[in-house]
Design a protein around this nucleic acid. Sequence first.
DNA 1: GCCAGAACTCTGG
DNA 2: CCAGAGTTCTGGC
Length: 177
Amino acid sequence: MARTNISASWADTSLGPVLIARSHRGICAILFSDDRAETEADLARRFPRANLRPHRAAADRVITSVVNMIEAPDQPYLLPLDLYGTPFRARVWHAIRAIPPGETRSYGALARALALPTTAARAIAGACAANPLAVAVPCHRVVRADGQLSGYRWGLERKRALLRREGVLRSKSHEGR
DNA sequence: GCCAGAACTCTGG
DNA sequence: CCAGAGTTCTGGC
């Protein structure tokens, strides 16, 4: 099978640096980063069979568009996404993309929406954790049934910031307790 | 290779 | 409070 070419570039956002990768079909990864080398290793792990190459284009309109989406997540995002995963994950990601900005769902509610037993909640959490497209697949809108934020692959602080930006959290609210 | 346990959970007993 | 349910991955033997 042919090796897919994937080009990656870095961009800066108010939530820190993001690594944006794309194939010929669309954006295939949007990864927040606290450590660039580690994030690049993460990208390589996610696409072990691809040719990864750097892509430098500061004024690229795709990059600009992704950054805009992160800064204003209530705007519709229309660029093509190359979202690929196991059938189960693809179903979960699709359901998550249907959550409108400013709303949240619990893991159990997603299970019901997918006609799965509520015991699948944990499997859904696993699918969220594997999401390659930060913000474009808004897994930050998935919270625990009691309303608390549980985990976020890219740090709870970012999850909180994204939700606050969408007006879901009161600016004053504390995380726990 | 196979099996056990963990991972962004939830509900019933 | 504890256990068990659905999926994927990782690490040990």
